[in-house]
């Protein structure tokens, strides 16, 4: 059984984790085009090699980032998302453009 070193819970069996997809930057939903939004939602890098992706330790609902080699099936490094995402996301609603 493969194991993942969870930054919060330590080494656990991989069956306790869920794969959450590539770490990608979200475009500004209020300003991006439909095509940019579709690319963000659907398109995948799907790289053969080292990827950065979200994983979740399901039992503790803890999301973190893993560097993983998709050819060798090896997890290289795991770290807390706080290492990469340092700024708070602003969720305030932008002003409606005036007609």
């Amino acid at each position: 059984m493969k194991q993942i070193n969870c930054p919060l819970n330590g080494v656990r069996n991989i069956q306790e984790f869920a794969h959450g997809g590539e770490v990608v930057t979200q475009p500004d939903p209020n300003r991006c085009s439909d095509a940019e939004w579709a690319e963000y939602i659907f398109m995948e890098e799907n790289k053969a090699g080292v990827v950065h992706e979200w994983w979740c330790h399901v039992a503790t609902a803890y999301w973190f980032i893993a560097e993983r080699d998709t050819i060798k099936d090896e997890i290289i490094r795991t770290y807390d998302a706080g290492e990469q995402f340092k700024d708070r996301v602003d969720f305030t609603r932008p002003e409606e453009p005036k007609d």
Partner: peptide, 8 residues
């Protein structure tokens, strides 16, 4: 140069 909505 095409990007696809595919996971292997």
């Amino acid at each position: 140069g095409l990007k696809l909505p595919i996971r292997t």
